[in-house]
Design a protein around this nucleic acid. Sequence first.
RNA 1: GGAGGAAUACCCAAGUCUGGCUGAAGGGAUCGGUCUUGAAAACCGACAGGGGCUUCAUCGCCCGCGGGGGUUCGAAUCCCUCUUCCUCCUCCA
Length: 423
Amino acid sequence: MLDIKYLRNHFEEVKDKLHARGEDLSDLEQFETLDQSRRTLIAKTEELKSERNNVSKQIAEMKKEKKDADDYITKMRAVGEEIKKIDQELREVEEKLDKLMLSIPNIPHESTPVGETEEDNVEVRSWGDVPSAENLKPHWEIGTNLGLLDFEKAAKVTGSRFVFYKGLGARLERALLNFMMDLHADEHGYEEMLPPYMVNRDSMTGTGQLPKFEDDAFKIDGWDYFLVPTAEVPVTNYYRDDILSIDDLPAKFVAFSSNFRSEAGSAGRDTRGLIRQHQFNKVELVQFVKPEDSYEALEELTKHAETILQRLELPYRVMSMCTGDLGFTAAKKYDIEVWMPSYETYREISSCSNFEDFQARRAGIRFRREEKQKPEFAHTLNGSGLAIGRTVAAILENYQNQDGTVTVPKALQPYMGGKTIIS
RNA sequence: GGAGGAAUACCCAAGUCUGGCUGAAGGGAUCGGUCUUGAAAACCGACAGGGGCUUCAUCGCCCGCGGGGGUUCGAAUCCCUCUUCCUCCUCCA
């Protein structure tokens, strides 16, 4: 959410900046009317309330002195009616204004490249050599042939875009989960967290999934609960409506969760393999920082995610998302893309974002620099560190051997009971 | 699932039955001061956040006793509703 005062005072400037995102800004035109009538109504009702407060005190005095106060009471009855009417009107205006404010995306940071589509994203750096082997199989074939993955059984038991991991496949997923959690907790200074897999509406609104993207979420029938699309939601909302002390910042959490996405609008895309599932596992990094530190923190957090790929010796590149490809909530975003041999291209495996105070404002996440000072909004960041299913896919493809087996990356061998090869 | 009880400021806690100098007693913690060689103790003082209008800034005004509604001239106090927590029964990984 944007600062309403900033929007009021820099309306044209904000509009221009949002235009670069390719957003439909037609709703924004209501802003000035709604904002103005809200303030007018508040002034009216508060003046009447002030009068009511004063007269009610007088009535109390008169009653105590056994004087007749009926005239005042009659008068205040009318004032009360008027207040009720204005308050109702105010509520309607505020509801509309809230809805509008919640639907305005974040303003891109000045360092975010301007562009319309993913074609305009900018490569920041790349790591590792892209192999030029032939005869490469896609990961679903490798995984199915080796008995690591079973998509057919999952389709029977649940439906499309689900998978069973089996044997060493299940073990590989679990090894990666432990490897990633250990690395971030032990070497990168994150506190470990296992969050709930369901969250309420306020949490989904706080991080920006709602109200605009309800179609993307799985909602629990009969409850106002949603399956988490990412651990970002429960972990960021951990501090919702809290005022942190300056000593709490930076707060860094690494959380594992399964993630659930409806993939509405993705019909026909990535229908095979692990790339696009309704349920997938992910290790997520979340940081709460002081505003002046957030861009440094974004670089740091992105490097933390990259470290995983470097230890696994998987080639990747880092892309800076352009204004048109930023997503709703981010001011700046890096995608880390891993090399996928069978696709002969890089595929997203991590997304690292600085939301500045956009989420903090929605979720009421604040901190105080000094005891008596006014609270300020913190900056929030997060990034995948990493998406585990896609990491499995990348390992199967990049570490496949001509005989159909898969070599276990060195860094994972301790987590695989010393196994060096999956056959 | 059934039956009860509770939610007051950083923490504890009075007030709720009997609505009105409660814009919230009292205690603790914290911060500042007096005293002291220093500390402790004692004593004095401070201690709610948010929104709006106005202002250079203050002052002032509105909201505020878990959330949201309602009754009333007036609500921490009465009514409805939701949430969370506790006790007992039942069930359960």
